[in-house]
């Protein structure tokens, strides 16, 4: 009899506690959602850029999600690399050194990127050729629409490059 009473009491207690936990989870979910980036930030998730604006041999820096993207219009004298070239003649890479996240500078005379922090170097394809960087500069997801590149969206050309790499 006494045991019986206890068990019903326990059941109620667990039911109440469990139900309160569900409510707490709901509140936590709403709190979690408030920390998500705002719509205006999400609207910057992709950046459109017209590749034809970059003259041969020229480098342009595009801001994508607050990070620099290097768009280099390659000339025949630069290092060639089928698997890292966009739209036939462009190098499009995230301008963040793969070593510790500094922004490398383009040295037009040597046709390389040189990182000011620890002396890492990348060729015109964005491949690491000297110093501490562990891997080439990253290629951001992109999609081509004619000569316009949409950075931040995965198009078929991007997927092809990724397969080759």
């Amino acid at each position: 009899m006494a045991d019986d009473k206890m068990s019903r009491r326990d059941f109620l207690l667990y039911a109440m506690g469990g139900w309160a936990a569900i409510g707490a989870a709901g509140v936590l979910y709403a709190m979690y959602k408030t920390w998500e980036p705002l719509p205006e930030v999400k609207a910057q998730a992709t950046t459109k850029f017209d590749l034809s604006k970059v003259k041969p041999g020229q480098l342009k820096v595009v801001s994508w999600r607050g990070k620099p993207v290097f768009v280099l219009h390659k000339t025949p004298d630069m290092k060639k690399c089928e698997d890292r070239t966009v739209a036939g003649e462009y190098t499009v890479v995230l301008g963040i050194c793969t070593h510790l996240g500094c922004i490398p500078n383009w040295e037009a005379d040597k046709k390389i990127w040189h990182c000011p922090c620890h002396g890492g170097e990348y060729d015109a394809c964005g491949r690491n050729i000297f110093g501490p960087p562990p891997r080439p500069l990253d290629i951001p997801p992109f999609k081509l629409e004619g000569k316009t590149i949409i950075i931040g969206e995965e198009g078929p050309e991007y997927k092809k490059l990724m397969e080759k790499a």
């Binding site: 109620l12 039911a15 109440m16 139900w19 309160a20 569900i22 409510g23 709901g26």
Partner: peptide, 8 residues
């Protein structure tokens, strides 16, 4: 949710 809570 709260209605159930009131019952419990």
């Amino acid at each position: 949710y709260l209605l159930v809570m009131v019952g419990l």
